[in-house]
Design a protein around this nucleic acid. Sequence first.
DNA 1: CGTTTTTGACCCGCGC
DNA 2: GCGCGGGTCAAAAACG
Length: 152
Amino acid sequence: MDLSDLSFFEFAERLLSDEVSPEVIASSMLQPQFQKPIHPIPSSSSCNSSLKCMSGSKKVKVDGGLRIAFRTKSKLEILDDGYKWRKYGKKSVKNNPNPRNYYHCSTQGCHVKKRVERDGEDNSYVITTYEGVHNHRSPGVLYYDPINTSYM
DNA sequence: CGTTTTTGACCCGCGC
DNA sequence: GCGCGGGTCAAAAACG
């Protein structure tokens, strides 16, 4: 079942009908229609030329790597992006009653990090932040690319 | 038995 | 220095 073309409300109906497996839900939640901008959409002049300018995410250069954050409408905290993650921390943060979780990519030699927290101002959204670029890829596996908001 | 989660302790930068 | 906010470590527990 391909849920990627559904509107959020159509998707919600499918959810309630209970005909969709949790795995399918988890990955489909990452589709663009479930996301909203972290900040107001930037003017084109502020777009970073080395990156595709995509509304909805916030990109920051950080010690040579890239940090990208985006918000996804989801009841589930764990969205399946194709990678395997190992949790290494959990902190309560200011201005947010919800905890923030810290993950490392569990593939050896790959040091990509990920933060996940529920939006304190809109609890229906989950904020995911990736830091770094994966240096591995298994054939046949689809991985979520937050810049293109699609699986590649 | 190898891997992951849990959780408090620890650490570090910053403002006062 | 000290406390605060945020990020990470690591030992024990849980898991499959």
